Lab assay of single mutants.
Amino acid sequence: SEFQINEQVLASWSDSRFYPAKVTAVNKDGTYTVKFYDGVVQTVKHIHVKA
């Protein structure tokens, strides 16, 4: 599913667990740039983002 900029989502971290994050960019290659609550910004594949 498509997510929008500033949408609150759950994004997987390197430990494969999902954490609350905010979408900061929707990228043309189908990835999302997300910002976790601790301030870390990461680009993740769409399969690693869920509502």
Rank of each mutant, 00 (worst) to 15 (best):
S1N: 11
E2A: 13
E2K: 14
E2F: 13
F3Y: 09
F3D: 01
F3C: 06
F3G: 03
Q4Y: 09
Q4P: 05
Q4L: 10
Q4I: 07
Q4V: 08
I5L: 11
I5C: 06
I5T: 04
I5Y: 05
I5P: 05
I5A: 04
I5Q: 04
N6W: 10
N6V: 04
N6K: 04
E7R: 02
E7L: 07
Q8S: 13
Q8E: 15
Q8L: 14
Q8A: 11
V9P: 02
V9D: 01
L10K: 00
L10A: 01
L10I: 07
L10Q: 05
A11R: 01
A11D: 00
A11C: 11
A11I: 14
A11G: 02
S12M: 15
S12Y: 14
S12C: 15
S12G: 09
W13R: 15
S14K: 13
D15E: 09
D15Y: 06
R17M: 11
R17C: 14
R17Q: 10
R17H: 11
R17K: 13
F18H: 04
F18G: 01
F18K: 00
F18M: 08
P20N: 06
P20Q: 07
P20F: 14
P20C: 14
A21K: 01
A21T: 02
A21V: 04
K22Y: 13
K22Q: 13
K22L: 15
K22N: 06
K22H: 10
K22C: 13
K22V: 15
K22I: 15
V23W: 01
V23I: 15
V23N: 01
V23C: 03
T24G: 01
T24P: 00
T24Y: 06
T24D: 02
T24M: 15
T24N: 04
A25R: 09
A25T: 06
V26F: 07
V26L: 07
N27Y: 06
N27T: 04
N27K: 01
N27E: 03
N27M: 05
K28V: 10
K28S: 13
D29I: 02
D29R: 01
D29A: 01
D29T: 01
G30Q: 02
G30L: 03
G30P: 00
G30R: 04
G30D: 03
T31R: 01
T31W: 07
T31S: 10
Y32Q: 00
Y32P: 00
Y32R: 00
Y32V: 09
T33C: 06
V34H: 00
V34I: 09
V34W: 03
K35C: 10
K35S: 08
K35A: 09
F36I: 02
Y37M: 12
Y37K: 07
Y37H: 10
D38F: 15
D38A: 05
D38M: 09
G39Y: 04
G39E: 03
G39K: 04
G39L: 05
G39C: 08
V40Y: 09
V40P: 07
V40H: 14
V40G: 07
V41H: 06
V41L: 09
V41G: 05
V41N: 05
Q42N: 06
Q42M: 14
Q42K: 15
T43I: 12
T43D: 09
V44N: 01
V44M: 06
V44Y: 03
K45E: 11
H46A: 15
H46F: 13
H46S: 15
I47F: 13
I47D: 14
I47R: 08
I47A: 12
H48L: 10
H48D: 12
H48V: 07
V49W: 04
V49Y: 06
K50F: 09
K50R: 12
A51K: 15
A51G: 09
A51M: 09
